[in-house]
């Protein structure tokens, strides 16, 4: 039961507090006692809109965080290929090129068997479908932006290799180039702990920029190799230096020699492979070098029998990089 008031602005009926600070029972403006249940609807507080019914969702197939990737890796061996490189060095372009060639059955010897991140691949490859009045767009793929700036976004691909009909799972982090810059310039490693689990690390390098700004690019690459060695020693995964824009020319031998020498100095096993993720010339088909890159990357972990990944097993240093990643992280905590 509650009183009502002749003044429209008074809320005594709902709050019990008189607008004129009179006792509600004796206020001269009161309309009398009324049953709350019969108060006209328009005098009551308007109820908020009903909450829209949430539709049940399917698990997404966008990029995955490490926790989402882990269950996938429990059944099969997954090759973790970490990719570092400055902004616009072609990291995403390599992955998109690989995906599009597979999706169109144009990568000799391999078939795409699955991807747990198919919508992510489609999203990042959308730029390659952009019409640019007959010219190749300036930017083939979107600049990588992460939903969570502290957690890497991983892409997944499962391939079938026709030579032995083996299914091969790849996990590839799609990272903004700024993470590599922060790694080099500020030794920021907190977001890169997954590097310890890598089977292989690809360091991407813009081949055109290497030709144009030789000393600067070499300097930055040397620094990056140095950082990798320092961060991951004593056991550094093999590193493949992936030089893009093969369609615009081969890298000079002196540059190759310089980077090989630098890697050797830090105990890094380095391979250099030139690729053309996209191509503007007839003689160099798009995707040139990717088969070689794939074959080199799959050498690691090729004969491992048990499909275990990232388990927290023992204090002994496991023989696999992926296991080491988790073990060392756990020990550090």
């Amino acid at each position: 039961m509650s009183s009502t008031c002749s003044r429209a602005e008074c809320t005594v009926g709902e709050t019990g507090i008189c607008l004129l600070n009179n006792p509600p029972e004796s206020c001269p403006e009161r309309n009398g006692v009324t049953d709350a249940a019969v108060v006209p609807a328009e005098t009551l507080t308007i109820p908020s809109l009903p909450t829209p019914t949430e539709r049940p969702r399917f698990p997404h197939s966008l990029t995955m965080n490490p926790d989402e990737i882990e269950p996938l890796t429990k059944r099969r061996y997954h090759h973790l290929i970490s990719i570092l490189g400055a902004p616009d060095a072609g990291k995403t372009a390599i992955m998109v090129s690989l995906y599009l060639l597979l999706a169109n059955n144009m990568l000799d010897g391999y078939q795409i068997a699955d991807s747990a991140t198919m919508m992510a691949f489609d999203e990042i490859s959308r730029g390659t479908r952009r019409w640019n009045k007959g010219n190749t767009p300036e930017q083939m793929t979107t600049h990588t932006e992460l939903q969570d700036e502290r957690t890497p976004g991983f892409l997944h691909l499962r391939l079938k290799r026709y030579s032995d009909m083996k299914l091969i799972d790849l996990v590839l982090p799609d990272l903004p180039g700024e993470w590599t810059d922060a790694f080099v310039d500020q030794t920021r490693t907190d977001r890169l702990s997954f590097l310890r689990g890598s089977d292989t690390i690809w360091v991407t390098l813009d081949g055109e920029e290497l030709a144009r700004l030789r000393q600067q690019v070499l300097h930055r690459t040397h620094l990056l190799l140095q950082r990798i060695a320092k961060f991951l020693a004593p056991t550094i995964p093999p590193v493949i230096l992936v030089i893009s824009h093969l369609d615009r020319g081969q890298p000079e031998q002196r540059n190759v020699d310089s980077m090989m020498a630098e890697a050797k100095k830090y105990g890094i096993s380095l391979t250099i492979i030139s690729v053309a993720s996209f191509s503007d010339v007839k003689d160099v088909p798009p995707g040139t070098g990717l088969l070689e890159l794939l074959a080199e990357s799959l050498k690691v972990g090729a004969n491992l029998p048990v499909p275990l990944f990232w388990p927290r097993l023992s204090k002994d240093l496991p023989t696999r990089f992926a296991q080491r990643f988790k073990t060392q992280d756990s020990e550090a905590q």
Binding site: S97, L101, T128, R129, W131, M140, S277, D280
Partner: peptide, 14 residues
């Protein structure tokens, strides 16, 4: 797309 059908794309666009 520009990766797998570059020449076609340059000719007919999208």
């Amino acid at each position: 797309d520009w990766v797998t059908a570059r020449r076609l794309m340059a000719l007919v666009g999208n």
